[in-house]
Amino acid sequence: MAVTIEQLQAIRAEAARFSYSDRESFLYALSVGFGRDPLNPGELPYVCENEDAIRTVPTMATVLTQFSALRESGIDYSKVLHAEQRLKVFRPLPAAATIVADYGVTAVVDKGPEKGALIFVETRVRNADDGQPLYTAGATIMARGDGGIGSVGDAPDVLPSPPARAPDQVVSFQTLPGQALLYRLNGDRNPLHSNPAMALRGGFSQPILHGLCTYGVACKTIIASICGYDHARIEQFDVRFTSPVYPGEQLDIDIWNEGTSVMFRCRAPARNVIALNNGVCTFRAFA
């Protein structure tokens, strides 16, 4: 057993500073599908500076900070899966900012020596200029090779299942063959997403799309189809990762309208697989 519960509990960072510019905001938006139609007035504020104020994609929050402590903790990273992503946005992300982040492991749920452990990490971010909160991002990591270490802390509530009824709306999105090559420029340069030989070694017929790219595509779809391109409406965006996507595949995003929120999932219909499931997007209530 290469890691202990005490080592995981000790993982933390406080007041780590990161900066980004509108270049990173534009790149992220392009990498999750904005700007496909350069004449669409709803999409242009996400990908260039024109007369309108720059708008940002809420899920960009997942790429603005980079911490290596969990990777270096001693867990068997070759057997790690990103199981869930949760995001609470307190206000729209600035197009450019210096941010301050606190990071740490909040809970561990031991599934047993043969089943691995769920590790819950949380990043709390505030704007350096005013010290006010921007967002909290929570990731659930499945460490398949590190079960039997014990449990600690309180895991978040289980994400709800989609309604049993047919979706209220289905929106198709065509991923590009080179989409992973573009998305990796946001910071995740794992060769599984770019190197065909490494993908084959990992059991895939070709490099796979980043799960967080599919997550961003789902957010882009909801911004466009539900929010009238108003990014400020999104307050929370949670999802479970269930299957990889291959660049170039068509994705169908199933959406259920629940009033102040929508539930969603993302399918690759050509292979009849669900890539994202248990998705919940909560909308901000404006006075």
Rank of each mutant, 00 (worst) to 15 (best):
M1H: 10
E6L: 11
L8M: 04
R12Y: 14
E14H: 03
R17L: 14
R17S: 13
S21A: 11
R23F: 12
R23Q: 12
L27R: 05
Y28Q: 04
S31M: 09
V32E: 00
P38R: 07
P38G: 10
P38I: 09
L39Y: 11
N40S: 06
P41M: 05
G42F: 03
E43A: 14
Y46F: 15
N50H: 12
D52K: 15
I54R: 09
A61N: 04
V63H: 06
T65N: 09
A69K: 14
S73T: 02
D76N: 13
Y77A: 03
H82M: 08
A83G: 09
A83I: 14
E84V: 05
L87C: 02
A95W: 01
A96V: 08
T98N: 06
T98I: 06
V105A: 02
A107Q: 08
V108E: 02
A117G: 03
L118K: 15
L118Q: 12
R124G: 02
N127Q: 07
P133S: 08
Y135A: 06
Y135P: 03
A137Y: 05
I141K: 03
G145N: 04
D146N: 09
G147D: 15
I149Q: 07
P156K: 10
D157I: 14
V158C: 04
P162K: 14
A166N: 04
A166D: 12
P167Q: 13
V170S: 08
V170M: 07
T175K: 02
L176D: 09
P177T: 03
G178A: 11
R184D: 07
L185R: 05
L185F: 09
S194V: 07
S194G: 01
S194A: 13
P196G: 11
P196N: 07
A199K: 01
R201A: 12
G203W: 14
S205L: 12
Q206L: 03
L209E: 01
L212Y: 01
L212H: 02
C213N: 09
T214W: 04
V217Q: 08
I222S: 03
S225D: 05
I226R: 11
A232F: 06
R233L: 12
I234T: 01
D238V: 06
T242G: 06
P244S: 04
V245H: 03
Y246E: 00
E249M: 13
L251K: 14
E258Q: 15
G259P: 10
T260Q: 11
T260W: 08
S261Q: 13
F264C: 06
F264M: 10
R265W: 02
R265L: 03
C266T: 06
C266F: 14
R267K: 04
R267E: 15
A268T: 10
P269L: 14
N272C: 07
N272V: 15
N272Y: 09
A275I: 13
G279D: 00
F286M: 10
A287R: 11
A287N: 09
